[in-house]
């Protein structure tokens, strides 16, 4: 599903060149729940942005869902994002002028789904917000907002979910619920990539990719095996 070959991403900061990613190789299979772990500045968000076609590599090749991203035009990248990946952000990034239902409908609309409203309602029910559909984001709690954000991503029906610190803004109990929701998506054949600096979260993954200074320093299942989400604590 996701293939990276010797991917590098360099930035220029004044006279300095910062190597955010440096020769990363990675393969993720369909339906995998992968946690990308690393401290701040390790390059994990850069990796997510490259897979999500928000950014382009300085070097190397990226293929996602059979599509070659390297050298793709701006328009092709936008089409790729529309049809292949969906983002979940740490700060939710909901549209404040739209209700919860409409925010989710946006996800369906963007991919040109028919009966987008009905689909959005269905997905909101799935994430447990059937009774909060008509509420605007400012009337929802942080956890509810993140559920709406996940529902928006799910409504696209895209095969890859990319989540950047999805629990970063949430309390423990809510964070766990969100993780469960994401885990469920992987069980349902979607590929889920979660970026976090929270090692505890990585215990729930099928696979943990550890980054440090832009390089993959570890890649494999959690050291103590995959733990049930109920056992996590932070």
């Amino acid at each position: 599903m996701i293939e990276l070959e010797r991917v590098a991403r360099h930035y220029r900061l004044g006279a300095m060149t910062v190597k955010a990613l440096d020769g990363v190789d990675l393969r993720v299979a369909p339906g995998e729940f992968v946690v990308v772990l690393g401290p701040s500045g390790s390059g994990k968000t850069t990796l997510l942005n490259l897979i999500g076609a928000l950014d382009t590599p300085s070097d190397g090749r990226i293929r996602v869902a059979g599509r070659e991203l390297t050298g793709a035009s701006r328009g092709e990248l936008a089409r790729f994002r529309r049809g292949t990946v969906s983002f979940i952000f740490q700060t939710f990034n909901l549209f404040p002028g739209l209700t919860a239902l409409e925010n989710v409908q946006f996800g369906a609309d963007v991919t040109g789904k028919r009966r987008a409203r009905e689909l959005a309602a269905e997905v909101l029910e799935q994430v447990g917000l059937g009774l909060r559909m008509g509420h605007f984001p400012n009337a929802l709690s942080g956890g509810e907002q993140q559920r709406v954000a996940i529902a928006r991503a799910l409504a696209t029906r895209n095969p890859v979910l990319l989540a950047d610190e999805p629990t970063g803004e949430l309390d423990f109990r809510t964070g766990v619920a969100i993780l469960e929701l994401l885990r469920t998506q992987a069980d349902g054949e979607r590929t889920v990539l979660v970026v976090t600096h929270n090692r505890e979260i990585s215990r729930a993954a099928d696979r943990v990719v550890e980054l440090s200074s832009g390089r993959v320093v570890a890649d494999g299942p959690p050291r103590a095996g995959r733990a049930p989400i109920a056992e996590l604590h932070w």
Partner: peptide, 21 residues
């Protein structure tokens, strides 16, 4: 970012034709 919907709530049930765009 998440603050206030202004008067948007008054149009909550005002369904315009077309999609969210």
């Amino acid at each position: 970012a998440a603050r206030g919907g202004g008067l948007a709530s008054v149009a909550r049930r005002w369904r315009l034709p077309g999609n969210t765009f």
